[in-house]
Design a protein around this nucleic acid. Structure first.
Length: 573
RNA sequence: GCGGUUGUAGUCUAGUCUGGUUAGGACUUGGGCCUUCCAAGCCUACGACCCGGGUUCAAAUCCCGGCAGCCGCACCA
């Protein structure tokens, strides 16, 4: 299996280690070793080039520990849980909702634990395996809980996603972007989920790194001004319809996917294309990537369309590495309700609209004495009412009954008059919709390693893209002669002065040195040989085809910088 | 979380059943020799019984518990 070969190299050469090894480890945690950490940072840096530089989004950084209220509002405290029940006899643990649905054939999702427990006993549901009694239902929340502060004992949680850290300061962000949609904000950082049983290596972690972008858009404008640049890209889609009819993947032109309504909007399609290009830039071939649409049954209640970018693996099958969703206004609406903050955006019309409407004008001389202390709230209530309703009351019954907090007030024509008001409406307040590409960085790193692994009879190597390879250049003496060793070390130092991560290796024979460098995907090697001493030239070796070219030492620094930054190709030097 | 199974240097493995010398080998890695371009050879060195308890004169070996890996079930907002 490629998986085991790659994970072997990853462990042996310092990309990935399972954490806390000397204390026998803890499932769901991984260390990035020296090479892994550089690879990760190179990949994240590339992500920033895409989303921050190219798309013009801005990055923020928010705490990984969040107070309970914030996650209550987002729904995670109550809903990021699974209802569980256990058999008292054989100790088997089940999802309570699943075994209920199996027996009574009724949707019970979202019901309280108490209610589920009742349903279990009402229907005399027993353990499907041994027929034993089941315990009461409890919620297993996947968030890590902690306490904030020594005294107040305020409950906090490790964030289960970075997204919430962007929604919460929305008002500040909106002001930063000077009140105009659309705008995008990204966050790269750790997120935490206390998985019940993480057993898939780096695929299922309890602490993992996300790179998320939240793009806030006008709900009525889901096009993208730069869609043209991706319109001809080909996407491999596995739509909900295809999945339900168990049909094949469909390769389709991006523009067509929008036109045929397979993907719900142009802006979502744009994000799919952007993700595809990013992955391709990381060296993941397009034939191991597909876009799988969430089925209506699996779609989170807040999303109207969601596509997972999946990568094919030999060990786990298709795994999700990116989720791209239209989250609508769910999050902002929810935070707005809980925090009582107005999180809407004023969207100005192209042309102001003028409308005439009936306004209510109370006669305060009579109004005040009549209602005394209640007057202010009556006024407030009247202002929010449609004046025509009041007028209708007067016309039909000669009065209007206004009910506030259970109390009824009689409004009569002598205390108010009506007036025609002309109002200019320049725009309206709307809650933005959110388009969210959410990257699982650890899974992407796994995919990159997995699909860069190459082997043939002679050698094994990682074909890492030169821009993300942890080590840029290896420098070797052809044989261990003092003069060659010294020159090689000098070249290594000078490469470092040019900003390249370079290593010297003088151990074993030249072949072994190349092999060691290949195994960790070093794209280029510089070899100092006997000719170097005569004419100050060295060879540059290209990892992928083993070709070598000879160049003067003084020229190689700029050549290698240009090669590594992708400005020139090896064939051109 | 349940059941099965496994755990010996960085890696692969012998030894475990049947307790008993200094836990053996190969590869890798470090140092050296040799070597004028792709894991060669020679010398040399470093390096391990998952953790904790128990049984025993004596535990890598037997027993119990924990942890971790693998497989199956379950789970994956």
């Amino acid at each position: 299996m490629t998986d085991s070969k790659v994970m072997n190299i990853a462990k042996k050469r310092g990309f990935l280690w399972s954490s806390f090894e000397i204390y026998s480890g803890s499932a769901g945690f991984f260390d990035y070793g020296p090479l892994g950490a550089i690879l990760k940072s190179n990949i994240i840096e590339k992500w920033r080039k895409y989303y921050i530089i190219q798309e013009g989004f801005y990055e923020i950084e928010s705490p990984t520990i969040m107070p309970e209220e914030a996650l209550k509002a987002s729904g995670h405290v109550d809903h990021f849980t699974d209802p569980m029940t256990e058999c008292k006899e054989c100790m088997e643990v089940y999802r309570a909702d699943h075994i209920i649905e199996d027996v009574i054939d009724q949707e019970v999702e979202g019901l309280e634990d108490q209610r589920l427990t009742e349903i279990l006993s009402e229907n005399q549901i027993v353990c499907p395996k041994c027929g034993g009694h089941l315990t009461h239902v409890w919620s297993y929340n996947l968030m890590f809980q902690t306490l904030i502060g020594a005294k107040g004992k305020k409950t906090g949680y490790m964030r289960p996603e970075t997204a919430q850290g962007i929604f919460i300061p929305f008002k500040r962000l909106l002001r930063f972007f000077r009140g105009k949609l659309p705008f995008g904000v990204v966050q790269i950082g750790k997120a935490y989920r206390n998985e019940i049983s993480p057993r898939q290596g780096i695929i299922r972690l309890r602490e993992f790194t996300q790179a998320e972008a939240e793009i806030f858009v006008d709900p009525s404008i889901k096009t993208h001004p730069k869609f043209d640049k991706f319109a001809d890209d080909t996407l491999t889609l596995f739509s909900a319809e295809q999945q339900m009819n168990s049909r094949e993947l469909e390769k389709i032109n991006a523009k067509k996917a929008v036109e045929e309504g397979i993907i719900s909007s142009e802006i979502l399609t744009y994000q799919l294309c952007l993700a595809a290009r990013f992955l391709s830039d990381l060296g993941i071939p397009s034939d191991v990537i597909r876009f799988r649409q969430h089925l209506p049954t699996e779609m989170a209640h807040y999303a109207i369309d969601c596509w997972d970018v999946e990568v094919q693996t030999d060990r786990f099958g298709w795994i999700e590495i990116i989720g791209i969703a239209d989250r609508t206004d769910f999050d902002l609406k929810s935070h707005s309700t809980h925090s009582k903050e107005d999180l809407s955006v004023f969207i100005e019309y192209d042309k102001p609209k003028t409308i005439t409407k009936l306004g209510v004008k109370p006669d305060m001389k009579k109004f005040g004495p009549l209602f005394k202390g209640d007057a202010p709230k009556i006024l407030d209530s009247l202002k929010n009412l449609d004046a025509t309703v009041i007028k209708k009351g007067f016309d039909e019954e000669g009065k209007f009954k206004l009910e506030i907090e259970g109390k009824i007030y009689e409004i009569t024509p002598d205390i108010i008059s009506f007036e025609e008001l002309e109002e200019i409406i320049r725009g309206e307040k709307v809650l933005p919709h959110v388009i969210e590409p959410s990257y699982g960085i650890d899974r992407i790193i796994y995919s990159v390693l997995l699909h860069s692994y190459k082997e043939n009879e002679d050698r094994t190597y990682l074909k890492l893209e030169k821009e993300i390879a942890p080590i840029g250049v290896s420098v070797f003496p052809l044989v261990n002669k003092d003069e060659l060793v010294e020159t090689a070390n000098n070249i290594r130092d000078e490469l470092r002065n040019h900003g390249i991560i370079a290593e010297y290796d003088g151990s074993g024979t030249i072949g072994r040195r190349y092999a060691r460098a290949d195994e960790i995907g070093v794209p280029f090697a510089v070899t100092v040989d006997h000719e170097t001493l005569e004419n100050h030239t060295v060879t540059i070796r290209n990892r992928d085809d083993l070709k070598q070219v000879r160049k003067p030492i003084k020229d190689i620094y700029n050549i290698l910088v240009n090669l590594l930054e992708g400005r020139i190709d090896f064939e051109d030097i």
